[in-house]
Design a protein around this nucleic acid. Structure first.
Lengths: 209, 209
DNA sequence: TTTTAATTCAAACGAATGTTTGAAAAACCC
DNA sequence: GGGTTTTTCAAACATTCGTTTGAATTAAAA
């Protein structure tokens, strides 16, 4: 007898939707593509999520929330260790969780899909962009506060655009993972630790300038 | 008698398509939206461009080519002035043309649309992404060559991902122009010069690290 | 076991989509 | 002016889309 691990319908839809929204975007992905790949019925989407947009919202939330949670935890750790922490420590706490997602997904497609999804959200008009912004608002505020304590001579405004650029860099690095010439070439903890280090070294001097 | 400046159909389509592709993406923009806004007939798109994808290709090309041209010219100037040029000079030559597009468009919507379009191309699956990559290939090769002469201790691979991140940063800055907290707040030559300077200062140390 | 609630099913709806088609109009050339 | 080429027009096509609907099935509760 073949042991089948039942995955519930809702989870199946989310998994496939995440993949396709990352690959093709919101407008470029049809619900029929999603349900076909997930092997479920079209009406299940509306039953469980209500609409395509709500499905997207759910996918973004489940992508963002683990990253936000871990990033806030790591910031708290860093601040508990020394107050004020170094700029490098803060940046590392910011960058690490996304890279952890990468490791936890074995460097497979899901790893880059999270980044691709976030990258896409940042190019969409509202309401899509606002969906993603809302998920990360708390995280950004916390890190801006921390940065302001470390770099008190810089305005909030300046720290804001710089942090935004760090996000752009991070998303790009993750999206390009595994491609020829990319910074990320492997997914062992050692390789990722090196990536984090190099990224911090890339952006820290700019943050200080 | 009202003086009407005739703009030809093809140009009208390209103008509107650029705007809508930037705002909504390839998949999210329908030809009917484009022709409605351009005030032309639907078949004109197929007559002049052959297909939606070819229209997109034409829009990307006309966005990219002035930037590529100016960037190559500025690199040549910088290299004529001193050999090897400074890293800062190279980065400035890279960043300036995009900012010039901003000034030339009066900081209006078209200014951010070019950046948004490029940003979107970078999140699309092929063949869209390849369309844009092809346009910038010559430019990237030229700048990588120049960077390699200035930073000979870094591998081509490393310079490649770093330049790619500079592009990500540049696109993001232009896309966010005019928003609260954004780096770009005005479009006078002086304001833009300051932006270029600050951007160079943001990325140059990271390039060297 | 029966009733109620939750979930899935498949068909249908109205709208939208890119492409094609042949005709009409406009532009060009001799 | 007439013939040819280019451009525009509007209708049509086949397909796809997100959403809705009522029925059937499954699961949970009494």
């Amino acid at each position: 007898m073949k042991a089948v691990i039942p995955i519930d319908t809702k989870e199946q839809i989310l998994n496939v939707a995440e993949e396709l929204f990352a690959e093709q975007g919101f407008a470029g992905t049809s619900l029929r593509q999603v349900i076909k790949k997930a092997g479920v019925n079209l009406s299940a989407v509306h039953y469980h999520f209500g609409s395509k947009e709500e499905l997207f919202r759910a996918v973004v939330a489940r992508t963002a929330q683990p990253i936000v949670k871990t990033s806030l935890e790591q910031l708290a750790l860093v601040e508990a260790r020394e107050e004020p922490p170094t700029l490098e420590a803060i940046l590392e706490a910011f960058i690490n969780p996304s890279l952890l997602v990468f490791i936890n997904n074995g460097g497979g497609d899901r790893s880059t899909n999270c980044a691709r999804l976030m990258g896409r959200c940042r190019t969409e008009p509202d309401p899509i962009q606002k969906i993603a912004d809302a998920e990360f608002e708390e995280l950004c505020e916390a890190y801006l506060d921390a940065l302001q304590r470390v770099l008190p001579d810089q305005s909030r405004n300046e720290l804001n655009w710089k942090l935004d650029l760090v996000v752009a860099v991070l998303i790009r690095v993750l999206t390009e993972a595994g491609k020829p010439d990319a910074l990320i070439q492997g997914n062992s903890p050692e390789a990722i630790e090196l990536v984090v280090s190099r990224l911090v070294n890339f952006v820290a001097p700019g943050m200080r300038s």
